[in-house]
Simulated scan of single mutants.
Amino acid sequence: MERIRRQLRSSRTARTSGSSSTETRSDYWERGTAIAGIFSVLLVGVGLILTNDFNLSQLAQQQKVAQEQQDLALKGQRADRFVRAVDQLGQEEDDKLSVRLGGIYALEALMKEFPADENMVIEVLCAFVRSHAPWTDDPAIPPATPDVRAAMTVLGRRPDPDNHIALDFSNTTLLGLKRFNLPGANFRGVDLSVSNFTDSVLPRADLRNTDLTNSYFNRVDLRGADMEGVVLDSAELQAANLSGANLRNVDFTGADLKGADLSGADLTGARASSLTTAQLACTKVDAATRLPAGVEPPAAGAWQQKNCAVDTD
């Protein structure tokens, strides 16, 4: 009987041990399968990342090549446009005025579109002015030709005056620029001596440190102009509208201000000692006009007197 019990217990133990072993093998298999799945997902993820990086690198390279090709094409177009514009300027025949004007305004367009070309355009247009308005002692100076006036207009409204080479009008005669219309013109620091801007419209012009020696600015609208440091040696400004203008440190030696409107203008500064009371005798001033020490303002309404009448030619 006891032997039978031992056999039963042995049988139950064997069955329990077998079942536990089977369960353990099954658990190991499930864990291994899960780990393998995770590892497979990681491999796929790494592959996707590497593929994406490669694609991005290829795309960036393609974009770089495309940009370089585009830049090269743009440079070629700029060069072609510049050459064509300069070629138009060189058409000297009398019936080619419209062609020359087209070249001038084509250069202006290039200067505005491509700031790096500004100095080059300025040099070309200044050379054009010098060659078409050369210095002469002949007192009978004809009006400036339309193409010279156009070149001066473009130069006077150049887009970045503070960051370019100086305008060079050396050995020129700019006596034919009457009725020049360019509000806000910028000719700062330029030699405009022996020039004639009579009856021109130049309000808010920047003429700081400009040389206007022996120039003619009669009846010119210079309201609010910045003329600090200008040389007006023997210049004529009869009936010029200088109201609100900055005339500090101006050299007024021999300047003719007969009939000029100096309302609200500032004429003070170190070099303003060259201004005399006699020069202001026929000018219009008001309470806002600032005069140098020792210079007396004109009598009220003196500029309207008969002896202060200005020439109308």
Rank of each mutant, 00 (worst) to 15 (best):
A85N: 06
D87N: 01
D87W: 00
Q88M: 07
G90M: 04
Q91H: 00
E92Y: 08
E92C: 03
E92H: 07
E93Q: 12
D94R: 14
D95N: 13
D95Q: 04
K96C: 02
L97Y: 08
V99H: 02
V99W: 02
L101S: 02
G103H: 04
G103T: 06
I104S: 11
Y105T: 09
Y105M: 00
Y105H: 12
A109D: 15
A109C: 05
A109V: 14
M111V: 07
M111C: 05
K112N: 14
K112S: 14
P115D: 00
P115A: 03
A116M: 05
D117A: 10
E118H: 10
E118D: 01
M120A: 12
M120G: 04
V121Y: 05
V121F: 11
V121C: 10
E123H: 14
E123V: 06
E123K: 15
V124T: 10
L125S: 01
C126Y: 10
C126H: 10
F128C: 10
F128S: 13
R130P: 12
S131W: 04
S131T: 15
S131R: 15
H132T: 05
A133G: 05
P134G: 07
P139N: 11
A140K: 15
A140H: 14
P143R: 06
A144S: 09
A144Y: 03
A144C: 03
T145Y: 07
P146C: 10
P146E: 03
D147Y: 08
D147L: 02
R149C: 10
R149W: 13
A150Q: 03
A150T: 06
A150E: 13
A151H: 06
A151N: 04
T153M: 15
V154G: 09
L155N: 09
L155H: 03
L155R: 11
R158S: 12
P159I: 05
P161D: 08
P161T: 04
P161Y: 09
